[in-house]
Design a protein around this nucleic acid. Structure first.
Lengths: 261, 261
DNA sequence: AGCGAACCGTACGCCAGATCACAGTTCTCA
DNA sequence: TGAGAACTGTGATCTGGCGTACGGTTCGCT
């Protein structure tokens, strides 16, 4: 049902008296999303230094597994063997507390390599991994890893680079969480996600996540996240669909992300 | 002045009606603290794989600098050249927002190596570094680093291991900040610090930080930090001195750290 | 020996965001 | 085709920790 005074809503000033007024949502699923699957090892830039022959050989040896939406890819009980490469679908890495609250550490997109830490002596510790699409991954066991990767200094450096990137990201998230209000965190998170999900050229970046999933990433509740998102939508900065967000004005997001109160 | 009903305070049950009653503080500075300086490169485990000859050679080439309490070791304006090794004193790594709020990312103790990320293509980004004691560091420039480190896969792996450790730490801090109340964060932070500051055997671990500095590490205000600390002190879990905290009951801290509300 | 600076305790109002509680809408799948 | 599940909107209420304010104590320096 349309608001009787729809006119006023539509033309209300940005600092209007209805802070997050109801939005008409985006109906169109637009196009059948491309999950971008690919032949296991060739496109992963961690392996860019290997010769095609080496890659092919590893590819043959790497068993692959699939999981369907909602399945756990691993948890403490199934400790991680070695190295995963995500071929298709997305995986959510998260942690939980004793009383069931969760924070998601990352949403992995196809092409992601994870579990790198183990090869340098880390465990996945308290991290869980859950498939949030139908997922296909391939596995490299410890022996393969040592043979092909640890021996090669170029690859070791690529690993370092990757970990260094993670450190930077985490430091950013930590300061944001400590020092910035929810709205800023929403904005920077959306930007980060938009850039991770390489969308086809000439279209607005689109993020295929529900408010709930976003909230998990933000360290906030679904409710406050919804509220903030509606606010952004009402300003025309984003457009919303069911479990989808379209970034319309990335610059405005950047602006708001830098706000610290 | 002693509380007139001191008896009641002293024997009050833990869940007493004066949640953070005033504490007699710890007067004794005890012993003239050992800042543990050492000959630059030999004790840094990042270089454990190098031969004594190589270490000695690097040592000769590595210029060293000193800063006094409160000085900035670097900031964006003085971009980082290469690699720092902290010989003496402590350094606080932190970030600030536009409006001046700060979060400290780490307190580095002697022996710490920092700036590793740059050698693998990172910048220090928005991090500042400030000496919180009188400090002595030595520097390795890019050329040295490439010659001695990048070439050696064993060292590359050590770097990865170190970065992996940082990732784990940061993930932990992030979840704590998102999901746990202040008291738990205080407890886990104290534990983390206690284990970093390797104290002489047979003494209680001691942390030489002010409430203010702790607060910066916690993402909280000095006031709430003080309150929580006093509470812990009144329970006999820690003892307080001016800019010093002594851990009396690490197990209790561990217990409380796991609380999520 | 005395003054300013750094530290610490405490208290009270306030607010962003959590919690709880529904209602409406759009999918999915039997 | 219809029942349930997943997703979202929106209020009412509560609260941990922030902001602010101020007094006391200890240290370092002149």
């Amino acid at each position: 049902m349309m608001d009787p005074c729809g006119e006023r809503v539509a033309s209300a000033p940005l600092a209007g008296e209805r802070p997050w007024s109801p939005q008409r949502r985006d109906p169109e699923p637009l196009m059948p999303i491309d999950n971008g699957s690919f032949s296991c090892l060739s496109e992963v830039d961690l392996f860019a230094d290997l010769s095609p022959a080496e890659i092919e050989q590893m590819d043959r040896m790497a068993p692959s597994r699939s999981y369907s939406l909602g399945e756990m890819v691993f948890s403490q009980s199934q400790p991680v063997t070695a190295l995963f490469i995500l071929k298709k679908g997305r995986i959510r890495i998260f942690r939980v507390t004793e009383d069931g609250k969760a924070l998601t550490m990352a949403i992995l997109e196809p092409g992601a390599v994870f579990g790198e830490m183990m090869m340098v002596g880390q465990r996945m510790y308290d991290n869980y991994a859950e498939a949030i699409d139908d997922v296909e991954i391939c596995l490299l066991n410890t022996a393969d890893v040592e043979r092909y990767l640890l021996a090669d200094p170029r690859i070791a450096i690529r690993i370092s680079r990757h970990l260094g990137q993670q450190v930077v990201r985490l430091e950013e998230r930590l300061t944001d969480l400590a020092l910035r209000p929810l709205q800023s965190r929403v904005c920077s998170t959306l930007l980060r996600l938009a850039e991770a999900a390489r969308t086809p050229r000439f279209t607005h970046p689109t993020i295929r996540l529900s408010h709930d999933q976003l909230a998990g990433l933000l360290g906030a509740t679904r409710e406050s996240t919804s509220k903030t998102m509606s606010e952004l939508a009402s300003r025309g900065i984003i457009r919303q669909g069911r479990a989808r967000v379209v970034i319309l004005d990335a610059d405005a997001l950047g602006q708001l992300a830098r706000q610290s109160n």
